[in-house]
Amino acid sequence: MPISNIPTKDGSIMIGAANDRLYGLMCRLLNKEEWIVEESALRVKHRRDLVRMIVEETKKKTTAEWLDLFEGSGIPYAAINDIQATLNHPHVLARNMIAVVEHPTCGPLKLVNTPIKYSATKPTIRDAPPTLGQHTDEILKKLGYSGKEIDILRVEQVIG
């Protein structure tokens, strides 16, 4: 019974109690052993009610408290981070996943860095993102359009 976006007191979590064993572990961690039933079809049939009851419990603690409780339990779980929490997550920072690139028009931009890391070679972001239409003329010329044809397309507002 994987459940995503479960509200907590201060955020949301995901719990992957996808089989009988994991579901039982989750119930024990929620202090709701009475929810453990042998028949998984019964859980599926009453999923909406069960999820509502789980949410009633998860809202009683913070995300950090639930993460601490689930740690080492064997149940797949995770905090659901918003953009700011993701950008500042210790793992993201340790892997240098955010790079600041100087953009000629916008100034410094934070961009997602390459996720591939090698011991000898350090992939990097080579250029800032292009502005809208920055490469239009270059691409059209490679496609065989003349400067005059490109000017006509611009006048006719086919391109910007």
Rank of each mutant, 00 (worst) to 15 (best):
P2M: 13
P2R: 09
S4I: 15
S4Y: 12
I6S: 12
P7N: 09
K9C: 10
D10M: 07
G11F: 04
S12A: 13
I13L: 10
I13K: 07
I13M: 08
M14Q: 08
I15N: 01
A17L: 06
A17V: 03
Y23G: 12
G24K: 06
M26D: 02
L30Q: 03
K32M: 07
W35N: 06
W35A: 08
W35E: 07
W35C: 07
W35P: 03
I36K: 07
V37T: 12
E38W: 10
E38Q: 13
A41M: 06
L42K: 09
V44P: 00
V44G: 00
K45G: 01
K45Y: 10
R47H: 04
R47D: 05
R47K: 10
L50A: 02
V51K: 09
V51H: 11
V51R: 13
V51W: 10
M53P: 01
I54R: 02
I54N: 04
I54C: 09
V55T: 09
E56L: 12
K59Y: 05
K61S: 13
T63C: 13
T63F: 09
A64C: 06
A64E: 15
A64F: 03
E65L: 05
D68K: 11
D68F: 00
F70D: 05
F70H: 05
E71Y: 04
G72S: 10
I75P: 02
I75F: 10
A78G: 14
A78N: 08
A79K: 14
I80A: 03
N81F: 13
D82E: 11
Q84M: 11
T86D: 12
L87S: 02
N88M: 13
N88T: 14
P90Y: 12
H91D: 08
V92Y: 12
L93R: 15
M97P: 04
M97A: 08
M97N: 04
M97R: 03
I98E: 08
V101L: 07
V101H: 10
E102R: 05
C106R: 12
C106V: 08
C106K: 12
G107Q: 08
G107E: 08
L109G: 12
L109D: 09
L111V: 09
V112E: 02
V112N: 00
V112Q: 04
V112C: 12
N113K: 04
N113Y: 01
N113E: 11
T114K: 00
I116M: 01
I116W: 01
K117R: 14
K117H: 07
K117L: 01
S119C: 02
A120E: 13
T121N: 00
K122H: 06
K122E: 07
K122W: 00
K122R: 06
P123T: 02
T124I: 12
A128R: 03
A128P: 04
T131E: 13
G133C: 03
H135T: 06
D137M: 00
D137K: 08
D137Y: 04
I139N: 05
L140M: 11
K142T: 15
K142F: 10
L143M: 15
G147M: 03
G147Q: 13
K148I: 15
D151P: 01
V155N: 11
V155C: 01
I159Q: 02
I159N: 01
I159T: 02
G160A: 07
